[in-house]
Amino acid sequence: MKTCLVVDDSRVIRKVARRILEDLGFEVAEAADGADALAWCATAMPDAILLDWNMPGMTGLEVLRRLRREPGGDVPRVVFCTVENELDRIREALALGANEYIMKPFDGDIVAGKLAMAGAL
């Protein structure tokens, strides 16, 4: 079973995302901030990461930057999931190694479509 780490400081978003991802057949783990997310990845790299941008402590962009420097950090397919919807923000995320980008609000079809485009399904 593929694993997906949901990184978001909102418990509601994590819960909604978990339900969608479990329906898609993922085993889901959750992290409420960047440090927690990187700790998860150091233990076991997930197949996919759904990553918020604005979180307390460390931004999603910083999480991605650090993740990609880690051994095996190139493996997870990273899909941003954020309220940031400016094209320059999306370009920035893609340039740092994000595989896809979801602008909130989202639904199950968008998540499934974007994970497929990212090669995570």
Binding site: R91, Y101, M103, F106, M117
Partner: peptide
């Protein structure tokens, strides 16, 4: 919502 249905982010930008 419409640009997130089928359109890869690379093509959006």
């Amino acid at each position: 919502f419409e640009v997130q249905r089928g359109l890869p982010a690379q093509r959006l930008v």
